[in-house]
C-alpha cells in the first residue's frame, strides 16, 4: 500500500523586504494509493507552493514528507504537470522527444499507446513552439504517465483545455490513476473539474493554514461508487458545491 505522509509541514518564504511569509504551518496530511485529491482555494493561498514542496522542488522549513510503500519511493517515480505549461517543454525537441528525454529506455511504444489512450488528435512529432497551450497541456498529461508514477502532482492540469477535450482527458486521467494505484494531488480552480475528477477535496483557506483537522470538514468523498445521474451523487455534489462556494466567498 502506497501512502504519502506529510508531517508537521511548515512552508515559509522570505519576502524581498526581509519579512517572512508563512504559507502553511504544522500541516499534517495522509494520502493513499489510487486517491485523487483536489486542492482548492483562492489565488495566492499557497497551492503551488504546497505542490512544489511535495515534489521536493521547494524545501520545507519544518516537518517532513514521507513516501511509504514498505520502502522509499523509487527515483523517477514522481511526475509533475506544471501550471505554466509553455515553459515546460524544450523548443529544440519535438513534443515526443521532450517526453522521450525523461527516460533512459526506449519509450516510443509507450508514448504511442498513451497518445492513443488519451485520444490526442495531433501528431506528437510537432515542435512545442507550434502548439497551443491546450495542445501542450495534453502532452504534459501524457508526459506525467510515462514513468508509471507512484505520485503525480498537477498544478491546474486541465485549465487550458476546451470543455470536450477536458472531459475526455479527465476521464482517462482518472482511469489511469486508479489502474496504476497512483497518488494524485492536483490543484484546481474550476469547480466542475474538481467535482468530476477528485475523490477528496482539500480546501485551502487564507494563509497561514495549519493542520488537516482545521480543513478536514472540507474533505468530502464525492465520487466513489456514484454516477453522474445518481440522485445521491447529485445531492452530494450540490451540497459540496454550496459548501465550497461558501468557503471561497
Amino acid at each position: 500500500m502506497k501512502i504519502l505522509l506529510i508531517e508537521n509541514l511548515q512552508i515559509k518564504y522570505k519576502k524581498k523586504e526581509g519579512k517572512e511569509l508563512i504559507i502553511c504551518d504544522n500541516l499534517s496530511l495522509k494520502f493513499k494509493e489510487g486517491e485523487i485529491i483536489g486542492i482548492f482555494g483562492p489565488n495566492g493561498s499557497g497551492k503551488t507552493s504546497l505542490l512544489r514542496t511535495l515534489i521536493r522542488l521547494n524545501k520545507p522549513s519544518k516537518g517532513c514528507i514521507k513516501y511509504l510503500n514498505n520502502r522509499n519511493i523509487e527515483k523517477g517515480k514522481i511526475s509533475y504537470i506544471p501550471q505554466q505549461i509553455e515553459n515546460s517543454f524544450f523548443s529544440w525537441l519535438s513534443v515526443k522527444k521532450n517526453i522521450d528525454y525523461l527516460k533512459k529506455d526506449n519509450t516510443d511504444e509507450k508514448i504511442k499507446n498513451l497518445w492513443n489512450d488519451f485520444e490526442i488528435e495531433y501528431d506528437f512529432r510537432i515542435n512545442p513552439l507550434d502548439c497551443s497551450g491546450g495542445m501542450l497541456q495534453q502532452a504534459a498529461i501524457v508526459r506525467a504517465f510515462i514513468n508509471n508514477p507512484d505520485i503525480l502532482i498537477g498544478d491546474e492540469p486541465f485549465s487550458a483545455l476546451d470543455v470536450k477535450t477536458a472531459g475526455r482527458m479527465r476521464s482517462m486521467f482518472r482511469k489511469k490513476i486508479k489502474q496504476q494505484g497512483t497518488i494524485a494531488i492536483i490543484s484546481i480552480h474550476n469547480l466542475d473539474d474538481l467535482l468530476s475528477i477528485c475523490d477528496k477535496v482539500l480546501f485551502i483557506p487564507n494563509k497561514p493554514y495549519s493542520s488537516l483537522e482545521d480543513t478536514s470538514i472540507h474533505q468530502v468523498e464525492i465520487y466513489n461508487n456514484h454516477y453522474v445521474n445518481d440522485r445521491e451523487f447529485t445531492n452530494k455534489e450540490n451540497s459540496l458545491r454550496q459548501t465550497l462556494e461558501k468557503l471561497f466567498n
Binding site: 522542488l57 523517477g76 511526475s79 505554466q84 515553459n87 515546460s88 524544450f90 527516460k103 508526459r143
Partner: peptide
Amino acid sequence: SNQSIEILKVYSV
C-alpha cells in the same frame, strides 16, 4: 527554461 529543467529534476533524469 527553468521549468523544463525542473521537470527533468522531478523525473530524476
